[in-house]
Amino acid sequence: MKEIIYLISNYDFISRAFLAGLAVSLCASLLGVTIVLRRLSMIGDGLSHISFGAMAIAAAFGFAPLKFALPSSALASLLLFRLGGRKMKGDSLIAMISSGALALGIIMISYSGSGTDMNSYLIGSLYSVSQNDLAFSLVLCGVVLICFIFFYHRIFSVTFDADFSKATGSNVGFIENLLAVLTALTVVIGMRLMGALLISSLIVFPALSAMRVFKSFKAVTLCSAIISLVSFCIGFLLTLVFDAIPTGACITVVNLIMFVLFFLLSVKKQ
């Protein structure tokens, strides 16, 4: 234990990754509740593939990766949230766009010859969280928290019954766009640590675990946030102990175990 505290407090890159991870876990778990309930669970996966594609294009053309990936993912997210279920079934739209973006990203990386970066984008790593990433994730976390406090009832209402909200004069478009953009930003930042393949686990697992046991939106939202933070801490500590395991995979497995525990708890309750 002493060693771990020593590691976190004495190595800048570890403390950076730890703080950024906590911030991203909190954002992802809060946003995850409404995403899962709206049957858009695959959106995190889709967005991570899109931002992988965007980062690869940025690397190939020499743009700053985040400056290019953030707006393009936000745009794609708006498209997925707004169009999903209208013009096309949401799941097929996500599948189509995400595999397209992934393929484009792979071609770009192979073409530009920077193949070594591919792994760190796909699997994520402790070492890739920069000072900028940390600052951005803390700001993002603040924004997500403020939005959830101020728009909590509206987020509930839009998720539960968008038609009712629209018909009775709520600004549904604003809330939907806000959630879409915040989700995209969370995915792009979280990808550094968790990897493009695993970031969506931060979005879906805590909400699904919380929904096993809790029955009101407020309780599910709070519990989801706590599960996510606890799972992140455990997963992060384990990667420090067994330093061969990538952080993202470890956190995902802890989240999976949490889900099983909550599932068993719900079975026992009945």
């Binding site: 309930l37 049957r39 509930f156 539960f160 009101s216 939106f217």
Partner: peptide
């Protein structure tokens, strides 16, 4: 469909 398994309190 969304409402069928939605965790929502009656008051909410």
């Amino acid at each position: 469909d969304v409402q069928r398994d939605f965790p929502a309190g009656v008051k909410e």
